[in-house]
Design a protein around this nucleic acid. Structure first.
Length: 627
DNA sequence: CGGATTTGACCCGCGC
DNA sequence: GCGCGGGTCAAATCCG
């Protein structure tokens, strides 16, 4: 029992019991079992250091060491404590068996109950009742001790606050996780519903293919016939615009799985099976990823040879949807657009960056100009997902891992994968939808009004030498931008680190115009070089790996682009998440050193280095629409 | 034993 | 037509 305190003070133990050291007048005596609660009043009329509790009318205060259940409830300014039984053998000690009610008079009453537990009993024991009379009876040591105690309690206050913040943070995280879970579930549910609906409508309109085809060409039924994609990688810009021939993205591999016996994951990919049943050239608006793969298949000319044995039950499943004839006027430029790729350059010692998706390696080859082999991966998170990626180390800097994504996920993505997928999706759309439109003038005007914004450290490089349009998100950071030579045929544009999260539904949908504008403007800049040469030998591996020595775009264009991109918070949020996910991967610790803070308050990503992170390189093939 | 990986073969487009 | 390079397949192999 603590006896040295001058003012009201208490000793507490971890379980929350404490001893009061001031006289307290009880409204009822402990023996009065009819009262479940005692109302205790502080009275400082006692000069001894023992805590005294007296009943009203009692002239003999009695020292009461008692324990208090500190998990007391706090109702407004009223704090109640449950007293534990202490020692019944001592005549001098009252053994309260009921709770005591304290009526705090002021000050710390607003402290949350959880804080009351440690710091505020409602009695203002520490500070508010430390009267001069109390101080007069204590010596300096005791005062110092009290001061120290006060400091400790203040520290405890802060700790309690911190604890409360942690709890709140945890609660918010839980809420966020729950929201993500619900979101994914809803997406899945929506996809199922839409597929069912589409199946029904397809049956109803089975005899009106021709009419439907025309409608599809006009984009009137795109929302009905096109299965929802949860992550588009640049190829689902507009359903009306993606009236492209499409067949099974996995048809080539999975429809053959019956014979191969190795790939047996095409059970629920009925859409693709159905598409092949009607011929690869009769598929339309199935999904953009399917279209991508179909296009790829056509480009490689392998589908006709190897898809000669489609399963005979193309329409057996309940999700089987009769394929519709595609428009025959799909030009090669559009085909090129479907081949759009998004490459991510990141420093990582790990063989592959963790992007949240599940991948299966299906091939590895040595690419020309790079001693490091290129690995080919296929997304295995869902049967039939056509997304593929290539992983290869940069020839110049082995620590740089180049991951190139292609295709669209045909399935909901976990939150961990959402970041990268959204980033690549947005980047791909940014590249693919680069056609000049009426929005350019608007965007241009907006850009020019913001050209004074600070130039971002990031870079955008546009090239005309790639067989496929490729956007590279360069997340590596080089102290010297010219450390690695850049091809002369690439245009480098300072670019903010960020990618629109949802191009279709956000101002970031204008990003394609941004890139287009960049392409357009580059012709206006003297000293800029836009090579139209198509060096097929200079393939993606080199393009993705050598983003150096590119002519610099004048700062005003750079800032223009920067400002436009930074205008969309989703853009930066997406890339921030992507960067975070990459950093979270095994060998990307270096990014932690380079990216100190990601500030999304105003749509900008703040990095610690002005040279470098978040380069966005775009390689666009303008001359070859057939690859 | 099933899934993932490896790796040689194959196909295709393109350039010469 | 041939060679080159990219991309993919699929049997063999590895691995948990």
């Amino acid at each position: 029992m603590y006896r040295g305190g001058g003012g009201l003070s208490m000793d507490s133990d971890p379980i929350g019991s404490f001893f009061l050291h001031k006289p307290i007048v009880l409204n009822s005596f402990p023996e009065d079992t009819n009262h479940s609660k005692w109302k205790l009043n502080c009275s400082n009329n006692n000069n001894n250091n023992d805590m005294d509790i007296t009943t009203k009318g009692s002239s003999s205060p009695r020292t009461i060491p008692f324990q208090v259940n500190l998990s007391c409830s706090s109702d407004n300014n009223r704090t109640e404590m449950n007293f534990f039984s202490h020692n019944k053998d001592d005549d001098n000690k009252v053994v309260p068996s009921a709770s005591a009610s304290f009526l705090p008079d002021n000050h710390h009453s607003t402290t949350p109950p959880t804080l009351d537990f440690k710091l505020n009993t409602g009695l203002n024991l520490l500070l508010t009742t430390n009267t001069s009379s109390d101080q007069s009876m204590v010596d300096d040591d005791i005062s110092a001790n009290s001061e120290d105690r006060r400091t400790k309690n203040e520290l405890a206050v802060l700790q309690a606050e911190l604890e409360r913040m942690k709890v709140e943070n945890h609660r918010l995280k839980d809420m966020l996780d729950q929201a993500n879970t619900d979101y994914n579930a809803l997406q899945l549910h929506l996809a199922n519903m839409m597929q069912e609906q589409k199946g029904e409508e397809a049956e109803e309109q089975e005899g009106f293919d021709g009419k439907l085809e025309d409608n599809i060409k006009q984009g009137e039924h795109g929302d009905v016939l096109v299965p929802r994609q949860f992550m588009d990688l640049g190829l689902a810009i507009n359903n009306a615009d993606t009236d492209e021939p499409s067949s099974s993205s996995v048809g080539r591999s999975q429809d053959r799985s019956g014979s191969s016996g190795n790939n047996n994951n095409n059970n629920n990919n009925n859409v693709e099976v159905a598409s092949e049943e009607l011929g690869s050239s009769k598929n339309e608006n199935v999904s953009d990823d399917v279209a991508v793969y179909d296009q790829e298949k056509k480009e490689h000319g392998r589908g006709n040879e190897r898809e000669d044995s489609p399963s005979g039950n193309a329409f057996a499943g309940d999700n089987k949807i009769p394929r519709l004839s595609p428009p025959r006027n799909v030009d090669q430029a559009e085909a090129t657009m479907r081949k759009a790729r998004v490459s991510v350059r990141a420093r990582s010692e790990a063989p592959m960056i963790s992007d949240g998706c599940q991948w299966r390696k299906y091939g590895q080859k040595m690419a020309k100009g790079n001693p490091c082999p290129r690995a080919y991966y296929r997304c295995t998170m869902a049967a039939g997902c056509p997304v593929r990626k290539q992983v290869q180390r940069c020839a110049e800097d082995r620590t740089v891992l180049i991951t190139t994504y292609e295709g669209n996920h045909s399935h909901p993505l976990p939150p961990a994968a959402m970041a990268m997928a959204q980033t690549t999706s947005s980047a791909a759309r940014m590249l693919l939808s680069g056609s000049m439109s009426s929005a350019d003038s608007i965007m241009n005007a907006n850009f020019l009004t913001r050209t004074l914004l600070p130039c971002s450290s990031s870079m955008a490089t546009i090239s005309a030498s790639a067989p496929f349009p490729t956007v590279t998100l360069d997340l590596t950071q080089s102290p010297n931008p010219l450390q690695f030579p850049r091809p002369q045929n690439q245009l480098q544009i300072p670019f903010p680190a960020g990618v629109p999260q949802n191009f279709a539904n956000s101002p970031a949908s204008l990003m394609p115009q941004i890139f287009g504008q960049a392409l357009y403007n580059q012709s206006k800049f003297s000293g800029l070089q836009m090579s139209s040469s198509h060096d097929h030998a200079n393939t993606s591996s080199q393009q993705l790996g050598n983003h150096t020595q590119q002519p610099q775009v004048p700062p005003h264009l750079a800032d223009t682009v920067s400002a436009a991109i930074a205008a969309d918070p989703n853009f930066t949020a997406a890339l921030a998440a992507a960067i975070t996910s990459i950093i979270g991967s095994g060998g990307a610790q270096q990014h932690n050193n380079n990216i100190n803070s990601i500030n999304n308050n105003n749509g900008n990503i703040t990095t610690s280095n002005n040279n470098g992170n978040g380069n966005i390189t775009s390689t666009n093939n303008n001359s070859n629409g057939k690859q």
